[in-house]
Design a protein around this nucleic acid. Structure first.
Lengths: 300, 300
DNA sequence: TAAAAATACTCCATAGGTATTTTAT
DNA sequence: ATAAAATACCTATGGAGTATTTTTA
């Protein structure tokens, strides 16, 4: 015998409880000789006698008593462990570590958290806001279960689903409300306020108004959409804002909104996860929740 | 797989620690496929996925993390259990529950306790004083490890060794010091003070002076040798006392001692234990200690 | 003699090995 | 193309069964 097995503990426990090889064997649903040999092997392995064998009854030695008590503790822990796993293995989501890019998080999270807590009672939510690159890293390293970000994503080992598409809307000072809607070229000539490096939305905006890799003429950076909108309302320049951010960011700002001409700029927001995760079904379910949230919102 | 085995826990623990099937298998000194199948069986048994299999690495699921933590606790408990048994399996006597008859206990116990504590460091001593019948019952029921009493003993399942032989000495009032030593028949005519029913020494004394089943003429009972000697010194009658009790019981009593004529009455004190006890070696050792104690005493 | 455990042996389930395939990067 | 794990298949260990012997009360 190489290692002390669970069987040894279970058999010994039964023997300790019954004090009788025959009845203990019956309890274990094995034959008496099978139990005898296992107990003998156990004692041999330990190098100590645990049972005092009388022909009338099998009595525990002092060491055997102590061994039995500890063995019982271990067996109880093992039973609890199995019970624990079964209790957790329902198709529910016990914990969700979800990352969301900064240009989506503030506008989606409140509704998403509410919906998730409705859908998965007792869920432990760990939302995290970070730029795409960080999210992908965390996902690949196993620190996140899912990420909501702009598609497409070329990383390997990661799959996902699109959630919704949203347009970019031009935000300009309130006094320009009646200026004509600029074309992409016209936009390039304006003073454009953008998010700092790292935000995918920055790249998307640049890609729209400067398709020939020529960066916009006059570019000023801000660290959040909120800041950008405030700067616009101060007359510093114009900016693009994703549709879903409008209700919140432009509510109290003195700015004018202009839907751009066709082809309108837009992006697809999707949810992704490791394609090796066992939570794929739940991830799709979470994705469906997001789609429902977005469909319930009035389009601007 | 019927039951969750220790092997499963050990293998899973290794896998959790290494996060890599190949290296974990190496750690367990088995092949990678062997580990893979065991882990698969474990997951099947539990009905839940514990490992998220990527081609780069094996990552634990959330459930897997919790399982690993609990499994580690269990494995540690098992290792401690083995360690515990090995620590206790030295050929020492950890606990000795020893019963001694009342006509021996007070005269042997002090020296015996000292000797045992010298011989077995840290021994837990549980001496118990009771008459032979009680001792034998306790021995057979496993409540005692050994008993010191008068031989022979006919009980089955019990074996032992003789320790020493001791004579019975006649104790009579001090004023009778110069009276002639009585024969057994003469003794029968005297007023004999004896221990109450149950004490083997009572039976032995009666057997000596009344071989023909005729009880002594005038018989008064006391509950201890000490009481009997005090009664003798008060002139109430005579009594027989085992040799080893003399130094203590007659030290301050005004009594005369008379060694009886051949064949002198005597008894053999021995130590007995269940012949199924695994402590037989130690019991013999304890017996040898008693013999040494008695040999060191000056014969009266 | 009777009851209980140990022994002898046989069988088979399964853990583990090697070789190979599959999968994902 | 490479690395890792899964699969296929075979072997052998050992756990469990039946029949029997030994032991002891």
């Amino acid at each position: 015998m190489k290692i002390l097995s669970m069987r040894h503990l279970r058999y010994f426990d039964a023997l300790a409880r019954h004090g009788h090889f025959g009845r203990a064997a019956e309890d274990c649903a094995i034959s008496q000789p099978a139990l005898s040999t296992q107990i003998r092997d156990l004692e041999e392995h330990l190098g100590s006698q645990l049972i005092e064998r009388g022909s009338r009854q099998a009595r525990l030695t002092h060491l055997g008593e102590e061994f039995a008590a500890r063995a019982r503790d271990i067996l109880r822990a093992v039973d609890e462990l199995e019970e624990f796993v079964r209790a957790r293995s329902q198709p529910v989501l016990g914990r969700l570590r979800i990352g969301i890019i900064p240009t989506v998080a503030p506008y989606l999270l409140p509704d998403l958290i509410t919906a998730l807590q409705d859908r998965y009672a007792g869920i432990e939510l760990r939302p995290r806001e970070a730029v795409t690159q960080k999210l992908v890293e965390d996902l690949q390293e196993g620190r996140l279960d899912a990420a909501i970000l702009a598609l497409p994503l070329t990383e390997s080992g990661i799959t996902g689903m699109p959630l919704f598409e949203e347009e970019f809307v031009l935000v300009r000072p309130a006094e320009e409300a009646h200026h004509p809607v600029p074309s992409a070229e016209g936009l390039r000539a304006m003073r454009l306020l953008l998010l700092e490096e790292g935000h995918c939305f920055r790249d998307q905006a640049i890609a729209f108004c400067a398709p020939a890799q020529t960066p916009p003429r006059d570019l000023i950076e801000g660290s959040s959409l909120s800041t950008l909108v405030q700067m616009v309302s101060a007359g510093i320049g114009v900016t693009l804002v994703p549709e879903m951010a409008l209700p919140i960011e432009t509510r109290s700002a003195r700015v004018a909104l202009q839907r751009l001409a066709q082809p309108r700029p837009s992006r697809v927001i999707g949810m992704v996860w490791r394609n090796s995760t066992p939570l794929a079904d739940q991830m799709r379910d979470v994705g469906m929740l997001v789609r429902e949230i977005m469909q319930d919102r009035p389009r601007a």
